[in-house]
Design a protein around this nucleic acid. Structure first.
Length: 566
DNA sequence: AACCCCCGCGCCCTCTGCTGGTGTTGC
DNA sequence: AGCAACACCAGCAGAGGGCGCGGGGGTT
């Protein structure tokens, strides 16, 4: 048996490969809870920590490679993935240069992108002669997803072998339970046992890959049958079966046993809990609602759901008329409405909330984090609802309509104010505390206070006298006291007036100044209206003078007043 | 398996406050 | 007549309250 260059721990690490967008790949959370990886347009690199260092995956010119990040390790840990045409798989594989290279290196991993309608193919083996016997065809599309699934299976296989010394039956159980992964009995297992591998392996030995005995670990996957692809397990089934196998084997030293899920970080001291947890890794939902045909994983979930149809609310609040489908809803309601218990407290301010999600949302007001970005403008919000509300700007949607005048609004609050101010009696008004002004809106009262009642360090002088003020409102009130004053007195006679401009005109009587000169006859006038009247009467041929005719004698007058004097 | 409890996400609502356009009014 | 000030108004966003509902884990 050739030495294994790629240790199984490295395979398991590959499973944990963190693929990021920056690296040109993205993870997609599917409904079944499986994180799938898709390749972006450009080739990129991604890294995963492995026992001997980081592995890098490269997508270069159609070839996917997993190689150590450091060159010095490349000789030991190269793991190459190559895409070949499945339609001529045998020939292509045999003729592919990398195959022979990998054969020398040890374990081969081949990812084949099938032609249209054919699956990806992952092969693990140690040479071309075993290739077709040690492959599994998966009826799924995502290449890296396939890779992850297979790597997980390798991991399970190794662990199965690791505990073989404790319970030899478990090996059989695993093989039987998976239905997909089978040891090449008579080959690897026998060989391993013969070489004193797994059967005699201790925890210390299993802890370090690459140590004595590690070279004998050869993960093999059999049962390749391309014609029976549709019978192969789906990825979700693999997860379940994989976890089913897990329940039998994970034990820790000490009085209390803990059971670990291989698909996630879940641990439990009870196997029953692990069993139930394992089912969460499947999308299987056997319990269907007969009213809406929606399916659920458990009877309890289905029952709660049906209660939403029937209106059944068994949990009633003692302090009000509210009732709820679940006890949790009742507890939450009581905290909001009655006990006001707020367990989630902000460490930066006095805010406390009933729900953790509310505290999380609140924290964003401290951090300024705005994860909900509008794709049409630069706006970003701290929660999804605000973004949804914002999007009405772009869509023009105005879902709120005034039932009286049918005016439409983007926000319910705006419509509410509209109805209150426009169509309601006894509209609440806001009295300014400093003056008699009454303003409809509080916000406008605030503007009023700012404009008229805010102290200003700068002096504001009365335009009519020497009085000085520091607020606009008293200034305006003061200036109004000058309103009916005939403050302007003529130096030459007894004439008085309220406005300076009137005095300016009057003074011309005494000075003889006539600044408005007729352009046709050079005659001067003290006021512009006098000049205009002169020009129209004597120089404008189109001018038709108004004639006020006496209704008794028919005589015409140029002035309405003259009509009554005559 | 069922019950209970808790959690997280999503949705909708209200309250609040700021902003800018508009009509009215006084000077 | 023109202008400035101001109340009015709609638009819009921030913050938080409340509930619906599915999911998951501990316990019985």
């Amino acid at each position: 048996m050739a030495a294994t260059e790629i240790t199984l721990e490295q395979f398991t690490k590959i499973k944990e490969l963190e693929l990021t967008r920056e690296n040109g790949l993205e993870r997609e959370e599917e409904e079944d809870g499986v994180c799938r990886v898709k390749e972006h347009g450009t080739p990129g690199e991604l890294e995963a920590e492995c026992a001997y260092g980081a592995l890098q995956a490269r997508v270069m010119e159609g070839e996917l490679e997993l190689v150590p990040a450091t060159s010095e390790e490349s000789g030991r840990h190269m793991l190459s993935l190559q895409t070949v045409d499945l339609t001529s798989a045998d020939v292509e594989l045999q003729d592919t240069g990398w195959l022979s290279t990998q054969q020398q290196e040890g374990v081969q991993v081949v990812v084949q992108q099938a032609g249209s309608g054919l699956p990806w193919l992952l092969c693990l083996g140690e040479g071309p002669q075993q290739l077709m016997q040690q492959c599994v065809a998966l009826p799924i599309q995502e290449e890296l997803y396939s890779l992850q699934v297979e790597v997980v299976q390798c991991h399970l296989l190794e662990e199965e072998l690791m505990v073989a010394s404790e319970d030899s039956e478990l090996v059989v159980n695993l093989a039987e339970s998976t239905g997909l992964i089978e040891l090449e009995k008579g080959q690897e297992e026998d060989q391993l046992l013969a070489e004193g591998g797994f059967a005699q392996r201790t925890e210390e030995q299993t802890a370090r890959p690459g140590e004595e005995g590690r070279d004998n670990i050869v993960p093999t996957i059999s049962n390749l049958n391309l014609e029976e692809q549709e019978d192969k397990l789906t990825s979700e089934q693999e997860n379940v079966e994989k976890a089913n196998s897990t329940e039998n084997r994970r034990k820790t030293k000490g009085a209390k046993q803990t059971y670990h899920c291989d698909s996630c970080v879940f641990t439990s001291s009870r196997m029953s809990s692990l069993n139930r947890h394992v089912k969460t890794h499947t999308t299987k939902k056997p319990h269907m609602c007969h009213l809406c045909l929606r399916s659920f994983r458990t009877v309890t979930l289905l029952r709660n759901h049906i209660n939403t149809h029937t209106g059944t609310r068994p949990y009633k609040c003692d302090d009000c008329d509210m009732a709820f489908v679940t006890s949790g809803e009742l507890v939450r309601h009581r905290r909001y409405k009655h006990t006001h218990e707020k367990p989630f407290k902000c460490s930066l301010c006095k805010y406390a909330s009933v729900e953790a999600s509310k505290l999380k949302r609140h924290i964003r007001s401290h951090t300024g984090e705005c994860p909900f970005q509008c794709h049409l403008c630069s706006y970003a919000s701290k929660d999804s609802y605000k973004l949804k509300r914002h999007m009405r700007i772009h869509s023009g949607e105005k879902p709120y309509e005034c039932h009286i005048c049918h005016a439409r609004f983007t926000q319910s609050g705006t419509m509410k104010i509209h109805v209150l101010q426009k169509h309601s009696e006894n509209v609440p008004k806001h009295q300014c505390p400093h003056c008699a002004t009454i303003i409809a809106r509080k916000s406008d009262l605030r503007v009023h206070l700012h404009n008229l009642h805010t102290y200003s360090a700068a002096e504001m002088k009365c335009r009519y006298c020497s009085a000085v003020f520091h607020e606009r409102y008293p200034l305006i009130q003061h200036q109004r006291t000058h309103k009916n004053e005939k403050r302007f007195k003529c130096e030459h006679c007894n004439y008085t007036c309220k406005e300076e401009r009137h005095m300016t005109v009057h003074v011309r009587i005494h000075t003889g100044e006539k600044p408005f000169v007729c352009p046709s006859c050079d005659k001067g006038f003290r006021q512009k209206p006098l000049l205009n009247a002169h020009f129209k009467k004597h120089h404008d041929s189109n001018f038709i003078p108004t004639v006020y005719e006496c209704p008794k004698c028919g005589k015409g007058f140029s002035r309405w007043v003259s009509l009554f004097k005559s």
